[in-house]
Amino acid sequence: MTPAYHFDWGVVFANIGGLAKGLEITLEVALVGMAVALLLGLPVAIARLGRFRLLSWLANVYTQVLRGVPLFVFLFWVYYGIAALLSIALKPFTAATLALGLTGSAYMAEVYRGGLQAIDPGQREAALAMGLNRAQAFRSVILPQAARIILPPTVNVFVGLLKGATFVSVIGVADMFYLAQIVSLRTFTPFELYSVAGLVLVAVTTAVAGFVFVLERRLSRGRVAI
């Protein structure tokens, strides 16, 4: 290690386009992963709360396992493990979104479950009593009310996925860190690029986390028309 490190911020400006592209990829991974989590989490939550014992048990195992295994390990498992098992080559981006999406779906299932359980059973009773069928009761009465409760923790799950999306470069997704790694191998200026990449991601996660904070305050203040 050289005791006197020579700062060269020029390297950041030289690679600004690449950094922007890297950020875009990070956000893409997080957003696609979140979409998978949102879609997959609901059926898991419904299965968990449903009256079919076997499905409920399976859903429970699914959430427990996926929440128990570190996302970082799961990412390797999907990218190297599954690929080796099925002898297919997953693209890094696909593996990353899959890993994030599946892990996210386990967390979302718990969020959905919490929201659905928080609704007074009388609401469902009243909806059924007036002749709505179960699907209508769920869609028109339970889900809209649960949505309000679900919103803040959902954004929290997204923040979690965003943090997870910061390390997908380890399987070769070309995000900001991937670029920083490659460039600093060439120019020996790791501090500048890593700092900028880090600060940008901190800014993004804090912004989203701040949004949750405001949201929670707003929602706890009273009724929000949906």
């Binding site: 997870g164 910061t166 880090g198 991601l201 901190v202 986390a209």
Partner: peptide, 8 residues
């Protein structure tokens, strides 16, 4: 709370 471990 805002920073990701990997970044840090």
């Amino acid at each position: 709370r805002g920073i990701a471990l990997y970044v840090l």
